[in-house]
Design a protein around this nucleic acid. Sequence first.
DNA 1: ACAATATGGTTCAATATCGAACGATATGCA
DNA 2: TGCATATCGTTCGATATTGAACCATATTGT
Lengths: 142, 142
Amino acid sequence: MKDPAIFAVLNEIGIIEQLARNRFERAQPDGLRLPHFTVLNHLVRLGDGRTPGAIARAFQVPKAAMTNTLQRLEERGFVRLEPDPADGRAKRVMLTEAGRARREAAVALAAADLAPVAAGLGLEGLLPGLAALRVALDKARG
Amino acid sequence: MKDPAIFAVLNEIGIIEQLARNRFERAQPDGLRLPHFTVLNHLVRLGDGRTPGAIARAFQVPKAAMTNTLQRLEERGFVRLEPDPADGRAKRVMLTEAGRARREAAVALAAADLAPVAAGLGLEGLLPGLAALRVALDKARG
DNA sequence: ACAATATGGTTCAATATCGAACGATATGCA
DNA sequence: TGCATATCGTTCGATATTGAACCATATTGT
């Protein structure tokens, strides 16, 4: 009685995510956590000025968790929270120069740590399939 | 300035893991969490009678977290913790029939939920590459 | 205009997770 | 044997994460 392919794939992905998260966090000198980095990364890649709620939805994470993460990022000076001029309820998350620099540093540290491990595995070949799965899962959440 | 391939791959994997975890946990009727399931799955696939520490190391998770997870599984009657006859410090984690049944049910529920999403994506093709990455990461942890 | 409802973000209590310290038992070595 | 050290699992305090309740502001419908 064999489990379906999706199961085997997600099992591997779960293990890889766990190992990669540990490796990433250990590679950071100042206790920067993966959630913090992912938010910085998101802002760098897709642009800042987004609302906390929009970021929370993008990562499928509760609003309360994003409130916490953004407070930590603000304490560290990596983002600023400004009031939304158009909507009195909302805020806008602005990336600071320090935040952008910290994201680049994190990428460099993680890449230096992971590059030897990933060398010669032909990972580019995985990207289309992974992207297709990600899109399918993303589309399926109602 | 492009990030290396390993980065893009791990980014996709992180998103997929997040979406899949949410989907998995929402599909379970009794609040069974992914950590609980992964332990049950581990015991079913590799055999029970292991020590808590060995399981914690296998998942690269602190011992304290495993203590908690195993206590929850024991409360639910899915595992039993027996003293190790050969080592007075150690315990052995035994899978109960209810635990084995719950694992099968979880697989069935998750598969039913995920199969439509994953249909026609050719996921089998991803398995060798993912396994290679998992092995490389696993080997690289000191 | 105004009441009903929806939305954005925070606060709150409960639970999970983490690293460190701890008591108990094993092992290594003089 | 006896003492130092290592290992096993738990407990502890600090932090993260969650869903629910909450306040403030927007939007909708009449």
